[in-house]
Design a protein around this nucleic acid. Sequence first.
RNA 1: GCCCUGGUGGUGUAGGGGCUAUCAUGCGGGCCUGUCGAGCCCGCGACUCGGGUUCAAAUCCCGGCCAGGGCGCCA
Length: 439
Amino acid sequence: MTDLLTNCKRTQYSKEITPDLNGKEITIMGWIHEMRDLGGIIFVLLRDRDGLIQITAPSKKISPELFADIRKLKKESVLAVKGMVQESPKAPGGVEIIPLEFKLLNESKLPLPLDTTEKVRAEIDTRLDSRFLDLRKHSVSAIFKIKSRMLHSVRVFLEKNGFIEINTPKLVASATEGGTELFPITYFEREAFLGQSPQLYKQMMMASGFDQVYEIAPIFRAEEHDTMRHLNEAISIDLEASFCDHEDVMEILENLVSTAISDVSEHCKDELKTLNVDLKIPKTPFERIDYDDVVDMVNSQGVLLTHGEDLSRAAEKAMGQLMEGYYFITGWPTDIKPFYVMPNKDDPKKSCAFDLMYKDLEISSGAMRVHQHDLLVERMKKKGLNPDSFNRYLAAFEYGMPPHAGWGLGAERFTMCLTGVKNIRETVLFPRDRRRLTP
RNA sequence: GCCCUGGUGGUGUAGGGGCUAUCAUGCGGGCCUGUCGAGCCCGCGACUCGGGUUCAAAUCCCGGCCAGGGCGCCA
């Protein structure tokens, strides 16, 4: 029924078929996006990674056998088509392919669980159940091409700036860092957890003399949140730099963000157009707003925010109303930040922590860290943590830990900013949320 | 976890105590030589699960499961 690939090789992707190939014999491969059978002429829209190309089969120009075989084809089946490129003003894109022969590489079952031509929208739940089919839609794959480009450009930027890529364990022993819930797992005869952040490890790397490190890796959070901007498994772009303070790493962050945006807008034009996104490259430096001023700004919008509290969702939205684009919130109260955040030396109630916001969405948070062993122990105790359970971490601070700072940037949240999607699940191939563990 | 709303063919929907359960898309068949959301004709296909009220439940009530939105939680 179906054919094997044998010696058949793709010569072009759909977008490489241009009118100047007129008269050339080419081989393309892809999925049947749509068929229009007009009786004496059949149009097959073949889709590949990059787009669509029209196969035009006029009964008078091709053999009756080939014509009959084409008529039998089904949507979403996989095809290799050898044919002649024909320039034609009537064809979409001004070019089409007159088939000489084809191989049916695999047939698709029908009906499809969702409509790949997007005539009928499917709900996100239906789409995620059949994600492989959903991803055949260009409006969906565009998100992942943009995410890929963003991650690429982040790596290039960091390598250029002297950062070393590291890998830290995701299987961890300690649940004592405080804050978020961890996923417990069985590690042979012991209990272990999935890592919530590479924070402690990248700090230990500062004591190794690597100076500047980054990691792009999954983080796991066992919170039962059910929102459009939370995931239980996400990718964190994490960075830590020695002999730096928070101002230094904020500068790195804003430059990285604007570089990535400009790189995406240059290399993902088609994808951005598909998504109808007009990406503006933000000017650096980003605006810095002190937490004290944020409290006033939020309250001025009629949203109650008490000094010393973290931003509620309503407070974030109020800020989103007032601020365009990217901005930092600095000078956070020390009390609502983790133990490893450096208090401000002139006013210890305030810290050297910052968040990077895009409108009403927090996409990154970072800080200058405490590098003095005794202060770190004191901060842990104040937070109700037991320093004994941090022995291996604390040891790194006893043998020459340089001052350092760093941040973590949520890859999916940043992708939301780049693509304009409203639901963070759109930015993950196979998202993990409160209820979804498959596929 | 809480609040609100919902669950109807493969997909997306209308309806809302008894009628042949609406429409679009899809799928199957037929016609058609320039489609590009092709068109026309014929056909196929559905009321989330459990319990209750009722002569009668897809519709009303209770519970479960699931979803959408909002919030909370979230170094």
